[in-house]
Amino acid sequence: DVAEQLTPVLLDGLREESLQLVSKLKDSSSSCAVDVSTVWWEAAGCRELCVVTACESSVSLWKPLASDHWGKIYTWQVGEIPVIQIVPLPDTCNLVCIALGDLEIGEIRLLLYSSENDLFKQSLVKTGNIKAVLGIKDRRLVSSSRTVQEQQVDIVSLSEMGRCKDGQTLMPPEETVLAFAEVEGVRDALVGTTAVNSIVVWSVNLKTGQLLKKMHVGYSYPASICHRAYSDSGLLFVVLSHPHAKESESCGNPAFRVVAFNPKTARSTGVMFSSLPPGHAGRQGDVKDASAAAVLTSGAIAVWDLLLGQCTALLPPDPEGGWALARWATTSACLLAGQRDGTVCLYQY
């Protein structure tokens, strides 16, 4: 009974107990936070999981201190073009990748520390009319970009010092690629979702960038975005979000779907379906393993278990302001919840 009284009942009867507040950091100099992420950072022989916060004009790196406090290590000033996204680079250390632009990405930059000359630096990776970018294993970045005539899909390999080493061009589909996901369980397989709801599969080994298959997702939800892909028992499972799906009586308001494709036949079937809590709309989502999180237009954050197809937690808007950002940390089940004023709360899930 005591536990029951202490557990706040949240909107729509969902409970907060699956999210435990671990710590909070506040960037007092931040005018308008645009993204948050985590990065492994090594200094003086000590490797720690640090938090990266981005506002339009700068990106800050925070290290954990004692008693769940955070200290700012460094702030990179990025200049005229606003930051719009932090691009996590899996399995890297001392490297932060950011996307800058106005409505669309116009530039990708790396932020790093150079031990050669003991300086925090930034370097340009790519410019153009960039539609999608993803950090993938082996310190690589894949991106799609458009010129008037054609689309380019390419991969850049980065050195430990943040220099661009090699490039590889992938065969582009006719339609614009809006999102990428590496295929877990199949080395060198990459998928993308396109503007007309196709899933494309590439081989991204060093020799070829073949487009192996194009499969249609279905017309029911336009502009689906892939967040995660994995291969199991000969099927390709893709986690999709549906930012623009309309509510229907039969399905409610779809947020995420897991769809199984047979890449040999291009046939597919829905496996699991996760809906927004009743009465909620709008979402900007992030997926890690079987967990998905999204900011809703009410200013709440919803968390789903994608294998159960159920919303498992709902963080109500903070009294000081609604949530604006929800991202999973690169390791462990840690949710980073951010507000526009630069406050970031870390929750254990």
């Binding site: 000969g234 494709f261 047979n262 040999k264 046939r267």
Partner: peptide, 23 residues
């Protein structure tokens, strides 16, 4: 998911599609 819905399934789909794709 049944094989009748999705057609014949191959555990080596990636290798097979890679071998079939034009270089």
């Amino acid at each position: 998911c049944s094989e009748s819905d999705l057609g014949p399934i191959s555990l080596n789909w990636f290798e097979e599609l890679s071998a079939e794709a034009p270089p």
